[in-house]
Design a protein around this nucleic acid. Structure first.
Lengths: 235, 235
DNA sequence: CGTTGCTTTGATGCCCGTCAATGATTGTGG
DNA sequence: CCACAATCATTGACGGGCATCAAAGCAACG
């Protein structure tokens, strides 16, 4: 029911050459074993992939598009935990139900892994379990850094941190253009701010010539070191 | 060097009856196998157990006392990710170096597990890996809830959430007294607030008769449902 | 019994949230 | 192709919640 918008493209054994290529040089055997049980699915813009509290039937990998993982309060307040892009895995928390909600920012292609099969695979093969551990660890460390951002950084620092995380992810340098697939509201909900505060921080960075904003979906990072300077204090 | 304050009490095989008893009914075989390679150590108040960035040589379990896990910025700003008490595990992020700093709030007894041995054990036994996954998942979900608190809750809600988390952990009911091992500054750094704001929120709850504060280290939760009412909006 | 460290309370200010209006961009139907 | 609506982004005015600064309680200790 919450899987409306998902279409299984090919069922049992899709060719995964393209997927592993997208991930780059990851030749872990455990990872291969996981990939082998994947099913390709599609989601459309704003579709819900799973909802917090649902039975956790599948884990996922992003092939293309962008996904947001978020928590909602009953009065509508929202906190986005993470944005996921090609090559990222999600839904690997080892629990009966999903601990957050996954939605597509834009049309996306995913690979999904049935939890039951993943579970069986993990019982037999330690290298698979180990791979899952690595994925979880990555998420945990990201969450810990996010805690510091939300608890102790100013609005300007948060926006600079966000841009720097995109710089890192895209291996961008000063002068490069970043594609920003998320709207301002998503950025605000990720940074624990309001949309207006995000706008003002971006405008301020623009006035200071640290970035340029050709359009709402792109940002040119003119001066990466200066952005790092703003974040500064992080260990 | 950063292990000053640690004393190995008994080296190879301490009796773990006390430890498992403290954890309650956890008869997982994987867990037993992990426990079997533990070494009992002590830390004193305010001692650093490990520092963010150190080589991750050990993972730990708390036997007694309270531990804080935190991130520091170079200008001194601090965010506490988690408080750990008897039965809790920490330092299980599967990375080369620790992703945060662990310190003792008070004199504490720990069991430490050499990463190298844990690693070898994990290669051989899937049930051990699985157990480690479960520990990581717990931390990840806790961190995700913490993100919502830091990003989207008001000061009063945060303090109420904190008290409720202690209520849950201690299985307390209205009228019960909670022992608060952490000082106000630690609470503030956990909740992303200042010490003054924490004090004011506590005073407000006290005035509203939701809690009583016999002394700085104890809080009586007079009206748990009313505390839940304050947090309210969470899914 | 004064010192020391932590907590609490008060006064003040600022950052960011709220409310509101204007721009910019995209999509739609005539 | 353009008018129009709809959506999103930006900017401004204002206020409130929390931080900052300061001082006074309060308990533990020598």
């Amino acid at each position: 029911m919450s899987y409306a918008g998902h279409v299984i493209i090919r069922q049992p054994k899709p060719p995964f050459a393209a997927l592993t290529a997208a991930r780059g040089a990851t030749q872990e055997e455990g990872l291969m074993a996981i990939q082998a049980i994947g099913q390709a699915v599609r989601t459309s813009r704003d579709a819900t992939i799973f909802t917090e509290g649902d039975d956790a039937l599948y884990s996922y990998k992003v092939v293309s598009g962008t996904i947001r993982l978020c928590k909602l309060m009953s009065d509508g307040r929202r906190q986005i935990a993470e944005f996921l892009q090609a090559g990222d895995f999600f839904g690997f928390e080892w629990r009966e139900t999903y601990s957050l909600t996954a939605e597509a920012l834009e049309d996306a292609e995913l690979v999904r892994f049935p939890r039951a099969r993943l579970d069986r695979l993990g019982e037999e093969r330690c290298d698979v379990q180990r791979q899952l551990m690595t994925l979880l660890s990555r998420d945990l460390c990201a969450a810990q850094n996010h805690l510091l951002l939300l608890g102790r950084q100013t609005a300007k620092e948060r926006v600079a941190s966000f841009l720097l995380s995109l710089v890192t992810r895209n291996k961008a340098k000063s002068g490069d253009t970043l594609d920003i697939p998320m709207c301002r509201q998503d950025i605000a909900d990720y940074l624990g701010l309001t949309i207006e505060t995000v706008c003002r921080a971006i405008s301020e960075l623009k006035r200071a010539r640290l970035i340029a904003v050709p359009n709402r979906m792109q940002i040119v990072v003119v001066n990466v070191p200066a952005l790092r300077e703003i974040v500064g204090g992080d260990a």
